[in-house]
Structures are given as C-alpha cells and as structure tokens.
Nucleic acid binder design. Structure first.
Lengths: 210, 210
DNA sequence: CGGGTTCTCAACATGGTGTTGACTATCTCA
DNA sequence: TGAGATAGTCAACACCATGTTGAGAACCCG
C-alpha cells in the first residue's frame, strides 16, 4: 500500500524507515500534524532532511504508512469478531463498536492526523474511504439480515443507515480523541453509540427481548 | 466577533473588505481552502497582497468572518423555527434538521473549509464549538422535556445523546457536501437523519402514535 | 579490487506567508 | 484654504517549510 522511495529491502535501510515511522507516531501523540516538520521527522530518526526523502516522498506518505498499519489492525480484529447477531444483537454491536473505539484511542495521534489530512490528500482519502466502505458493507449486510429475519423493522434503507451510523462513530470518536467541546466522556462513548445503533436499527432497546 | 485589521468604518474600505469576502466565498465554492492563496484573495478583490493585510490579519481571519455569517444565519433561523414538539415531534425534528442541511448546503465552500480549519485554528474551533454547544443545548433541552412528559424513554443521557446526534449530522452533511464515498444521496440525507434522531430519542418510528 | 547499488547530505531552488517603510488620497477643523 | 491626521496602497524584503540536485561515502558481490 504505502510505497517507499527505494527499490530493495536492505537491513539498515529498513531500520531507518521504521525509525522514521516510530518517531513520527511519537511526535503525533503530542503535536498536531501541521506542527511537525519534515526536519523534525528526519532529526528524530537520526538523519538529515534530504535523506528523509530517500525513504518517503513526503510527510503525507509517512502518515499514509502509519494509517495503513492502524487500518490493518482494525481489519484483522474485525475478522476475529464473534458474529452472534442472532443470539445477542445488542452485545454483538457493542463489541464491534468497542473494537473501533479501542483501536483509534490507542492510535490517537495517527487517527486525528489522518482524518485531518483526508481533506487535502487523495491517497489518505482513498485509503480511509476504502476501509470505511468495508465497515459500511459489513454493517449494512448485518442490518439487512436483521430486517430479513424480522428482528429489525424495515422502512429505512440499510445502506444509508449504515453509512450514517458509521460516520457518527467516526465523528464522535474524533471528538473524544481531540477532547473537543462539546463532546462526551470517553467512558460514556461506547454506551451511547451502541444505544443509538440499536435503537435506530431495531426501533427498540432490547432486540431479542431480554 | 470576527475582527478586522483597521479601526473605523469608512465607505470604500468597507466595500473592499466586502469584496474580499465575496471573492473568497466564490473561490471556496470551486477550490479547497488550501488551494486558495492570499494572492488569490487579494487579486480577486482588486488589491495587492500587502493591502490584503490591511483588511485581514490572515487567510484564516477571512474564513472566520465568513463562518460567522453562516452561523448567524443559522442562529437566526433556529430562533424562528416552530417548536411544536408536543403536537408533532417527528415533523418538528425534521424541520430543525432540514434547516441545518439547507444552510450548510447553500454555503458549501465555507462549511467545508471551516470544518477543515477547526483542527488548526483556535478561533475557528472556538466559534464552531460555541454554536455547536448552543444546538446541543437546544436539542438536549427538548429531549429532556420529551423524556419528562413520558413521550421518550429514559435510560439514556439526554446531553450525550444530543451531542452524538448533532455530531452525526455534522459529519453526514460534510460527507454529502464533499461528495465523499461512502456517503448518501443529498436527497436522502434529511430522511435518514430524521429517522435516526426519532428512533434514538423515542425508541419508535411514530412518537405521538399516528 | 572494481563496478554497481545503497545510502547520505550540503547547497540550492521555489513558493507562500507575513512585515516594513515610503508613498498617495482623503477628511477635518482652524 | 491649507496643515496635520488618518485611511489606504504596494514594492521590496525577510522568513520558513518543502522539495531537488549532484557529488560522494559505505557496502556488497563477483
């Protein structure tokens, strides 16, 4: 996904490349993306600015590589999620949403930088949009299945509902990560988001009726 | 709110100032904020770049002034909205949400630029956050009233619900404005958003039971 | 050891932002 | 009316971050 500026994979080169990424994520944990210069990325990895360009074509490319890792982690964890929507719909949705919250919280700097860069950078936008698409596909498949088996009322387009709920999650998580105001407490986020998902998918607080 | 770089209010100066704003909004309708230079803002208003600084201290200040206008328009229209939540809850929410959609769609460039600038600029963030706060206050007051009169189920914090739903609207409208993918059709947005608000506030599709 | 590839960086080029200082046009009040 | 203030204008400059070039050092493999 995220290309590098050189052809083969030599040892000390890979270590440098990795040092840049590690340093970049560390810097992003405390500063905004715009406040990190290429000079900072280079010096922190023990190289000069022009040498940085040997490893990455731009600052955005570093962010793209970091985002790629985060998204891979999410994809991996989505794949291992139990899909027990028929037996415990509320719990299943809550676990899925909780996984997203966890991953993005644990990569706060990268997440917020990537979301900010999306407006400016085609590749970041493309990568984000592809994964968003796959989460939307997953959610709308489940919603459609729930509607088909009569657990969820029809009367709303499953795809559009899935898009809106996923975008809500993205935005609410971002607000929490950035400590925006207004926002909600990090501890409350999962509970509120799940409730909104469940109420708006099932039209009720306890689908499956416990 | 949005300061200017000079002291009194003379005629030809105000016209210039206005020309900058008009030109800026026009440019933002077709280009991203980052792709508009101060040179562009100046030339389009018939002045040189240094003269621009006589009217505004920065590019962000222009955006702030434009955002201020948009928000004033929203506040004004919020004030004139019928508050018939008791007699027609679904309709009342739909009209409120529809008003936001209308205003932001009609100032597409400013809205998306402002949302992008929020991460970077304290004043834009502050202005946006203040108005967001007032919309959240409005919605949570209504939700609490609906819960108090028994129309909406309790079991969810009104404030947190209001924050999440308002953030969802912001994000979904942004996605529509930017023609992002995934997103939903502009024509479908109002319907979906209203349905989610109503289902998650009332736990039912037709509060008041029609 | 010799030719090729990896890796490095001083020095340069570019483009956008913001500043200075000198200048002109206009208003205001004696 | 005319002298001083105030509004308005911009060429030229300083600055900083990005990205490029080209020359060379380190290393590898035959």
């Amino acid at each position: 996904m995220a290309q590098r500026g050189r052809r083969s994979a030599r040892v000390s080169g890979d270590e440098r490349q990795d040092a840049i990424l590690v340093n970049a994520e560390a810097l992003l944990a405390s500063r905004a993306f715009d406040d990190v210069s290429i000079e900072d990325l280079a010096r922190g990895a023990g190289i000069s600015r022009p040498t940085f360009y040997f490893y990455f074509p731009s600052k955005d490319a570093v962010l793209l590589a970091l985002l790629d890792r985060v998204i891979t982690e999410v994809e991996h964890r989505v794949g291992h999620l139990p899909r027990d929507f028929e037996s415990d719909p509320a719990g299943a949705w809550t676990r899925s949403i909780g996984m997203f919250v966890e991953v993005f919280v644990s990569h706060r700097g990268v997440s917020t930088a990537a979301i900010g860069a999306r407006a400016r950078n085609d590749e970041v936008r493309g990568l984000w949009s592809r994964s968003m698409q796959s989460w939307v596909d997953f959610s709308s498949d489940v919603i459609r299945a729930e509607q088909a088996r009569g657990a969820a009322p029809a009367g709303i387009d499953a795809h559009d509902l899935a898009v809106s709920l996923n975008l809500m999650n993205e935005r609410v998580i971002t607000a929490v990560l950035n400590r925006e105001s207004p926002a909600i407490a990090e501890t409350a986020a999962l509970d509120i988001l799940s409730t909104i998902w469940i109420r708006s998918i099932y039209g009720s607080d306890n689908p499956g009726g416990r």
